[in-house]
Amino acid sequence: MNEIFSNPVLAKALPEAIVETLQMVGISAFFTVLVGLPLGVFLHVTVPGGLRPMPVVNRIVSDIVVNITRSIPFAILMVALIPLARLLVGTSLGPVAASVSLSIGTIPFFARLVEACLRDVHHGKIDAAQVMGSTRMQVISKVMLPESLPALVAAATTTVVTLVGYSAMAGLVGGGGLGKLAYNYGFQRFDVTVMIVTIVLIIVLVQLIQLTGEWISRSLDHR
C-alpha cells in the first residue's frame, strides 16, 4: 500500500492519466453514439424489405462499414487517421486528437450493434404503428427506438467497454492516459507498481461501466 502512495510516478502522473483516459473514452463515446445511432438506423431501414428500402445505397454504406470494422485492425486505422486528427483538431497529440480515430474506429462497430437491436423489434409492432397512420419517422422515433432502448443501452455499454481497451492503445501513439502510463513506466522502466495500479484501475473502470450500463438497461426494460 505504502509503495503505491510513495511511488513518485504515480503521485505525479496518475491523476492526469486518469483524466486523459476518461476524456478519450467520454468524447469518443459521445461521438460514437451521435453518429453510430443514426447510421445503424439508416442501415436497418434501407435494407430490401425495410421501412424505406434503398438497396444500392444500403449495400455501399454497409460495405464501407464492414470494411472499416472487419478488415482494418484498429492499431493500423489509428495510425492511418493521424493526419485526419491533425486536420480536425489542429494536433495529433493528446486525448482530443486520439478521440478522432477512436470514434471512427468504433462508430461502425456500434452502428452494427444498433442495426441488430432494431432488427429484433417484432415486426407486428411496426405493422401496428403503420396501420395507425405513423409516418416513417414516427415509426422510428415512437416504435423502433423506444422498443429497443434496453438493447441499445446494452450495445452502448459494450461499445464503451471496447473504447476503454482501444483508448489504452491510442495512448501509445500520442493519446496519453493510462495506456501510455503503463507503457512508459510499467513496460519500458519495469515499474511493476505502476503496471499493477493501471491494470487495476482499468479493470475497475470497465466494471463500473458494465454495471452501470446493465443497471440502466434493466430499469428501462418493461418486458
Binding site: H122, G124, K125, D127, A128, V131, G133, K142, V143, P146
Partner: peptide, 29 residues
Amino acid sequence: RRRIGMVFQHANLMDSRTAAGNVAHPMEL
C-alpha cells in the same frame, strides 16, 4: 389508415408503453 382500426392476434402492443400509453399512441401521431 386512420379510418381503419386493426386488432392483431398477439395484440402487438408496445412493451415500452403502459396501457394508457399504448392507447394514446395513435392520437400522439
